[in-house]
Design a protein around this nucleic acid. Structure first.
Lengths: 149, 149
DNA sequence: TATTGTTATACTCTATAACTATA
DNA sequence: TATAGTTATAGAGTATAACAATA
């Protein structure tokens, strides 16, 4: 049985019929979100993927480039230029674990940059969730995570 | 006040701390969704953007390339190769409205293709929503639309 | 004067294949 | 034998700037 339309949808005319499609709405929402966050992070010379790597590295010890890639769904090959950029900016270091792999660790400068990243993302997430009506708010994250985890 | 954690989150250990971030979850969910749908649509030689254009054109009369672009957030310049592809595949026609703009209309073949698109997307959307726990389901679409509309 | 369609181009992100050195 | 790191490259998708013709 189809659930009844929720209050805030009733008055919306389908000027764009695609907006009723969950896949389309998901795509547009993600694009809007990424555009906004990309622009905010560019103020501190960070890309989305840079920031996600920095945040992941913080929480783990002896994490390798391959592990980061598997966790964040970034191809192993694409981790190389990404980490090179971060290393050239002296934000991370490669510390050899054995003769073929290295732990990626934040430098002091990297830890400072991470604080900026966290300020920006915290404000960003507030602004993001502020747009969502109160009734829907607690459902968004678990619904999204159900779609990919 | 922060709402209490919902039941299905309680047992989840934050193996990936980024999964608690709504922006990150939105990005991953959208990527997973797009990968799936892209692969399904490739079976009938359609891309995501092709399918969205076909579905939009169906519902409107005398819609121009520029209007489609504005509605779907596709640059005017990028509409040209897209529509050329669809026209070469004899799925749409350009019907001159005046001396500078044309209405984009589905051909008979295009209408048949659209039926295939609708079958695929309907099944896709069922599979997509099936992954979302019942309590969250009615909240997903309105929450997503609040993020970009 | 603003808009449409168009061309050409550049840039980012992502994917793939292959290679070596090591576990 | 499988995996880590790397190189090189190719492909999507998207963005920008410019132009002629027309509203």
């Amino acid at each position: 049985m189809k659930p009844a339309a929720l209050p805030e949808e009733i008055h919306l005319l389908p000027a764009d019929p695609l907006a009723e499609r969950p896949g389309y709405a998901l795509r547009r929402a993600a694009n809007a979100m990424m555009g906004d966050l990309t622009s905010r992070l560019s103020a501190i010379d960070m890309r989305l993927s840079d920031a996600s790597v920095m945040m992941l590295v913080q929480d783990r010890i002896d994490v390798t480039a391959s592990e980061i890639g598997r966790t964040l769904d970034i191809q192993r090959a694409n981790m190389v230029p990404l980490l090179n950029r971060l290393e050239n900016a002296q934000l991370v270091e490669r510390r050899p674990l054995d003769k073929r792999s290295s732990a990626i660790v934040l430098t002091l400068k990297g830890q400072q940059k991470l604080k900026q990243i966290e300020q920006i993302t915290a404000t960003f997430e507030e602004d993001l969730m502020e747009r969502v009506p109160e009734i829907h708010k607690p459902h968004l994250l678990p619904a999204l995570n159900a779609l990919w985890r």
